[in-house]
């Protein structure tokens, strides 16, 4: 068969990508309904509808509007931020082990946020301050990992782990020293929790997060070019310095937004981009939006699971319980592929 007889199919793959996005969207909607109706107080679908329209029992209205909805929105925001942050970092470093948690970015944001919370200073500036903390930590880890020949991912991870544990210790100390030793609050923060999040925190972080999500997703083409290696990316017109700064800053802003809402939630930023790439390949025009959706879904699911048991678990424990085995499987697969 010659080339003229072949039907030109410029887009054979995207159909699969569209299906993947649709599946994740449907899953997200289902989990959303489950999450709204189930909890300590069970609601029927009709009751949920009434409460959403500010009708019916006032207790139900309060539960939906003041307890469940802010918490669910918080889960969606934190999940999408972590998913996209991980996808951007993994794509930029061309390494699947990168995520804001492992690289110490979350710890940097967390330290600043905790310092402001416990000292009771400038609460409304927490997202911005956390971002500055994240940027400073990113630069520190980057400088630690830099050598004359480029960035070594091994050094990057080692530097990130070292800074994470150092900052984690300082955070714990700060939290334990504050007021009457709020061990419970400290624990919740360090493992990541969505318990008791209100509209205040969300409206504070929302604008920063929205900007970061939009700019982050618009970097898809640059990410695609970076996948070809530094030399080819430059010869295709990418300014390495500028694109790395932009991607790093956006990933840090996303991680900082997540941290200012929920503390240190691990594994979402690491696992979700892997799932997205398994579903749609390496075209970042699909990987990035799917990481946003997938991250939101994962955290919503984890939050719903955390509320199912007799005792409510912090959401970070659930993501770790779910994520750690997946991570170990990824490491296993990696070592056997090479």
């Amino acid at each position: 068969m010659t080339s003229s007889q072949l039907p030109s199919l410029p887009r054979a793959l995207p159909s699969r990508s569209i299906v993947a996005v649709l599946i994740v969207c449907v899953g997200l909607m289902l989990t959303l309904v489950l999450s709204l109706t189930q909890g300590t107080v069970q609601m029927s679908y009709a009751e949920l509808q009434q409460a959403l329209w500010h009708q019916g029992s006032s207790i139900n209205q309060t539960i939906i509007w003041d307890l469940r909805l802010p918490r669910i929105v918080a889960a969606l925001m934190v999940g999408s931020a972590l998913g996209l942050s991980g996808a951007l970092l993994q794509g930029m470093l061309r390494n699947g082990l990168a995520d804001p948690f492992i690289l110490g970015i979350s710890a940097g944001a967390g330290l600043v946020a905790v310092a402001l919370f416990t000292l009771g200073l400038m609460q409304s500036w927490v997202p911005l301050a956390a971002w500055v903390g994240a940027i400073v930590t990113t630069s520190m880890v980057y400088l630690l990992a830099r050598s004359s020949t480029g960035i070594s991912v091994e050094r990057l991870v080692l530097g990130g782990v070292a800074i994470s544990s150092l900052f984690g210790a300082v955070q714990s100390t700060l939290l334990l020293l504050s007021e009457d030793g709020r061990i419970q609050a400290a624990l919740n923060w360090l493992v990541g929790s969505l318990n008791g999040r209100g509209w205040n925190e969300l409206t504070m972080v929302g604008p920063y997060l929205a900007i970061a999500l939009v700019v982050g997703c618009s970097l898809a083409q640059v990410m695609n070019l970076l996948q070809l290696g530094d030399d080819l990316a430059v010869s295709l017109g990418v300014s390495l310095m500028r694109s790395r700064l932009l991607i790093g800053a956006i990933a840090a802003l996303l991680a900082a937004s997540a941290v200012s809402i929920a503390g240190l939630v691990g594994f979402v930023g690491l696992i979700v981009p892997h799932g997205a790439r398994l579903l749609v390949g390496t075209d970042y025009r699909w990987v990035l939006p799917l990481s946003v959706l997938g991250g939101a879904w994962t955290l919503l699911l984890a939050d719903w699971l955390s509320r199912l048991g007799a005792i409510e678990l912090p959401v970070g424990i659930v993501t770790a319980l779910l994520g750690a085995p997946v991570f170990i499987w990824l490491l296993y697969r990696r070592s056997h592929a090479s």
Binding site: Q227, L228, L236, G237, T282, D283
Partner: peptide
């Protein structure tokens, strides 16, 4: 054309060649 190429998994030939038009696109183009 560099000596050694990094090949992203799952990339088709047409997708690869399409990246050659990137110098003519704004960075946010889709």
């Amino acid at each position: 054309l560099p000596q050694q190429q990094t090949i992203p998994p799952g990339l088709t030939v047409r997708q690869l060649v399409s990246l050659g038009r990137a110098p003519y696109q704004p960075w946010w183009s889709w």
